[in-house]
Structure formats: C-alpha cells, structure tokens
Design a protein around this nucleic acid. Sequence first.
DNA 1: CGGTTATTTGACGGGTATCAAACACCGTGG
DNA 2: CCACGGTGTTTGATACCCGTCAAATAACCG
Lengths: 226, 226
Amino acid sequence: MLTFDDKSVLRNCTLFRALDPRDLDQVLSHSAVLTLSRNQQLFAQGDPATQLFVVIAGQIKLSRLAPNGDEAVVQVFGAGDSFAEAAMFMGGRYPVTASAISPSRLVGIASARLKAHVLERPEIAFAMMASMAQHLHGLVAQIEQMKLLTTRQRVIRFLIDQSGRGDGAASFELPHDKSLIANRLGMTPETFSRMLAQLADHGVAATGSRIRVGDVGRLAKLLGDC
Amino acid sequence: MLTFDDKSVLRNCTLFRALDPRDLDQVLSHSAVLTLSRNQQLFAQGDPATQLFVVIAGQIKLSRLAPNGDEAVVQVFGAGDSFAEAAMFMGGRYPVTASAISPSRLVGIASARLKAHVLERPEIAFAMMASMAQHLHGLVAQIEQMKLLTTRQRVIRFLIDQSGRGDGAASFELPHDKSLIANRLGMTPETFSRMLAQLADHGVAATGSRIRVGDVGRLAKLLGDC
DNA sequence: CGGTTATTTGACGGGTATCAAACACCGTGG
DNA sequence: CCACGGTGTTTGATACCCGTCAAATAACCG
C-alpha cells in the first residue's frame, strides 16, 4: 500500500511531476508496491514486460549478462527515477535485468493500464517521452565516455560529477560499491582502485567510501591534459 | 517538395507506419524536405532543437565531438529511420551532431507542430515512444558490446549482423567506410583492418567493401570461444 | 569473533593504440 | 588515356595501458 511519504516521492518524480494530482491518483489506482532486499532481482532479461517502475527508495541497477556470466551494468536508478518505460513498446520483453543494489521500495505500474491513460490524457505521454529522452541522453553520454576517454579520465569525470561542483573543495560518499562503480565506468575493480590511488597526487583522498577532493577545478584541468 | 516516392517511404517508416494516411498528411503538411551532400552537416551538438527528422534516402551519422577533435559515432541511420525525437524534450538542444555520410534526402518536422498533433491524436505518441524505445535498445546493446566484448568479438558480431543470416554462406557490402565502421565498433581503423585480416583464417574474405563469409555459423561459434 | 565479501597491491602478459610509411582507390583535369 | 592529388586502407614496429591471476589486507555481518 502506498504511504503518504511514497506519494510525496511520486508527486515529485520526473515522470509524474507534470501530472495533476487527480490524474496521478488514476494512474496509481492499480499500481503495486514492491519491496526488494539487497541483491534481489526485480526482473530478468527476456522476461515478459508488463510494468514500468518508479523508485521510491533504494537503488536499482539495470544490467546485461553475457553467456559466460560477465555482467555489464547499463544504468543505476535511485529515488524518483523511473525505468522500463520503453519496455511496453519493445515487443513485450525486458532487454535487461533489474536488481536492487540496496534495500529498495518501488511501485510497479501496469503498462496496459498506462497506455489506456495516455489515450485519455496525452500529457502523460509527454512525461514519458521526456523521461525516455533523458535515458537516451544518459546512454549517449556513456557511449561517448567509453569511446573517447581513457580509464583515468573516466574516473576523474566520475569524481567531478559526484562532487556536484565545478571548483573548490568537495567531500562526498561513493553512491555504491567500488566494484559496481568500476563496472559502470567500464573497467575492472583493480584498475579503478589503482586510478584512485594515483589521484592522491592530485588532491584526491579516499578513505573507505568517503572521497575528499582538494580542488575540483584542478581535477577538471587534469581531465583536459589527458 | 515531397515526391510520390518520398511519401511511400514515409508511409512505411517505423515512426509513421501506424498512422492513418489522413493523420500523416496532417503531420507532413508543414514539413521541410532537405537534401544533403556527403559530409554535409545537418545540425551540431548544442544547436537549438526544433525539428525531428526522417531519412528518406542516404545515411546520417550522429556523433559527439571531444574538445580535441576526436569523434565518437553514436548511431547511423538509413532510409525509413527517424532520429532526434528526443530532442523536443531535452530542453531544446541537440546533444549530438548530425551529418550525412552519403548524399541524403530527409524530411524535417517541427517539434512544436508535432506536439500539437499528439494532443489531438495520442496514437502518434505511441509511434514516437516505440521509436525511442528502439533507439534505447540499440544504445544498450552498444554499451553491452563495448563492455564485455573484445575488439575481435565486436568485429565478428558486426559481420554476423550484417550478413543477416544465422548460418551458411553470405556475401554483402559494408554499409560505409571502414574507418567509420571502426569508430562505431569502438576501435581504430588499423585494428579493424587487422581483425578482418585475421578472420581470413576463418572463412572471411574481404575484397574492397565486399565481404564473403564462408559459414556464418562458424563465425558464431568463434564468437563463443573468445 | 570467525567467516565471508570487498578492496588493495604486486607481477606479468597481451591486446590495442600510436606512429609511420607504403599502398590501393577514385574522381579530376590535362 | 594517363598523370595526379587526395582520401581511405593496409601493414609493420613499438610502447604501454589495462586486464588477468594471485595473494595479502581490510571491511563487513551475523
């Protein structure tokens, strides 16, 4: 059942922000709330796609699995993010596997129901398309990164992104396990660890999952040099 | 001006296939036809995004440019494909650069106009979302490739894809310059050339842009081995 | 506290990028 | 028809980044 806090997240999430409360209630009237423990799978690549999801709390990772067991993390979503909007148009199969990387709470919305709503209220379609556009942009950025940045540059860029600032000092927690971050950045955990160690010479101190950057601007300059 | 042949392409393209002819005419009533010569740019990364496009003939590449001039090709579209649907929801800026890699003909459709149509006919929104979903899937597949396949595997997979078959012999033309293909696959032209040369031992003969594969199934098996 | 999982560190080898030069291809103009 | 410049492709030699394997250490959790 949706709590009051749940609704507050949903009212402000990217996908539903533009909807008026009445429409939102309509959409949510038959939604299911799900709770996942760490590492629990939500759906697997190839499963029939019947719902899209909005994260209320926790973190969900979308990944693809190779026959040999290797995993490629495609995206990670947190509170307020929605995913699998595309699924309802992809011939009914999820193209990725989704699992929780921390205890999570989310709502699942039946695609069929949502389709019906779109026909009545096209504004919902705009919200979905905006959300999909954002995902597209994220994937494009990722491809760009992998194609024209070295591992060191990707790590630097990741740190700058996480710092949320353009210059000065910063301190923050890594959003999840280092090995998962390494995967997201397209490198091995070993390499990620080494890069982090190297950056100590440039004002980056890592103690556990806490990162302290002396000067973000200096990192940005380092990015340019190569 | 739209010729009869142009319309025939548009009627069958992924984006408009589901539309009834009357709606299509409506949508196209204020569209612009564009002709681009090889290497001519359609729009640049950062330009205000006012239109989406459908390719009638030729090929368009979407790429991102690094400050140092390096280029990352993100996708290549041919006749019947549409692109930049997402732009109308991305704050008004194209996130990539688009240019023709062969003489091309395309229609540009004003996003504002299309938005208005969606409000009247939500079915159009479904078509757009389906198209965006396909793009999403393509990008996910690309990320997966780069993350868990070696250069050789990517070349093999590319050849299998191009062959359009699952087994037996095949012969086909490469869709464009080898250096562009190399970029798409995330490797240098030199490496691509060498990989192709290596594959001669496995029934792949390349003479110019014509590829002859002795047995596609054998290639698929090779993919699995590593 | 013990056992499991993450992370670090080291040594090593191979796969790719890089640089450089030779070569093929193609449309142009003489 | 051939010479010619430009572009694209191939081939070779070299360097080095990064993945792999292995072991030690640290962090985590019941």
